[in-house]
């Protein structure tokens, strides 16, 4: 069974502006203490679409059992970071830029699971479809 990963952003809406402070709380549950070898929390952007993908990590922290009280990584952790001026979130036709807080859990035997909590940085208007591709027009 996969562990449960919860991520909570301390913000009324998942919309931020450059320079805003992102406050995040995360917790891993439903997993035996001995199974956890490390937890990584990050704030990152990534692209997706038709071409090659890219990503950038804005914030990163890694926790191992010996750094946690009681060697227990299942307690709630908190971090905060000031968000950068760019890249801003964007929903385009062939590419989109997505920001997220990601928690990656490392388990014994090399297993990994992760969960993303997406949020928006900035207020760039989403692209609208202007010219239909030939395939759509010829339908």
């Amino acid at each position: 069974m996969e562990p449960l990963i919860s991520i909570r952003l301390h913000h009324p809406k998942p919309i931020f502006q450059p320079g805003n402070i992102l406050r995040c709380e995360y917790q891993v549950d439903a997993v035996e203490l001995q199974q956890l070898t490390a937890i990584e929390a990050s704030v990152l952007w990534r692209t997706e679409g038709k071409g090659d993908e890219d990503m950038g990590v804005h914030f990163f922290e890694r926790r191992t059992p010996h750094e946690a009280p009681g060697n227990d990584l299942r307690q709630a952790f908190f971090f905060e970071t000031s968000l950068p001026p760019s890249p801003l979130s964007y929903e385009g036709m062939i590419v989109r830029i997505c920001w997220c807080a990601r928690v990656r859990v490392f388990l014994r035997r090399g297993r990994e699971v992760f969960f993303d909590k997406t949020f928006r940085l900035g207020a760039v208007r989403a692209a609208k479809f202007a010219a239909s591709p030939a395939s759509v027009l010829s339908s």
Binding site: K13, P14, I15, E48, G51, E53, R120, A123, V124
Partner: peptide, 17 residues
């Protein structure tokens, strides 16, 4: 409003898939 709160779902034909 310039942008909705959430992104639409990922395109299932994105290069990652």
């Amino acid at each position: 409003p310039l942008a909705p709160t959430e992104f639409p779902p990922t395109n299932p034909f994105s290069s990652r898939f």
